[in-house]
């Protein structure tokens, strides 16, 4: 029965694609309903949705934090400054 319902409401490939569409764009009311019904029936896609939303939040935070946890080493910085200064001289 579940299998039949899933076929009617959406295949998992389309459902997971819609989960992404929902994050980056907007779903129509009908799409929302179909996705809601699918994730209600399909535990794996429901789980994927949770993971995908968490990943979205992680990626947002990762790219917008203002600390630099992996500061470059002192000697790398000195070498880079020298390299840039030399290149500037040639311009």
């Amino acid at each position: 029965m579940k299998r039949v319902l899933k076929k009617i409401f959406l295949p998992c490939t389309v459902a997971t694609e819609m989960i992404e569409k929902d994050i980056y764009f907007k779903l129509s009311a009908l799409e929302k309903l179909r996705l809601f019904l699918h994730t209600g029936l399909c535990g794996l896609c429901h789980r994927y949705q949770k993971h995908s939303r968490l990943l979205h939040r992680i990626l947002m935070e990762l790219h917008h934090e203002h600390e630099h946890p992996q500061a470059p080493k002192e000697e790398e910085q000195t070498a880079l400054k020298e390299k840039i200064t030399n290149r500037l001289e040639k311009n």
């Binding site: 630099h68 992996q70 470059p72 910085q77 840039i84 500037l88």
Partner: peptide
């Protein structure tokens, strides 16, 4: 050249990040 001395570290850390 002065800016290179002052800001390279921060810019490199940012670009690497």
């Amino acid at each position: 050249r002065e800016w290179v001395q002052l800001y390279t570290n921060g810019m490199y850390a940012w670009a690497y990040h």
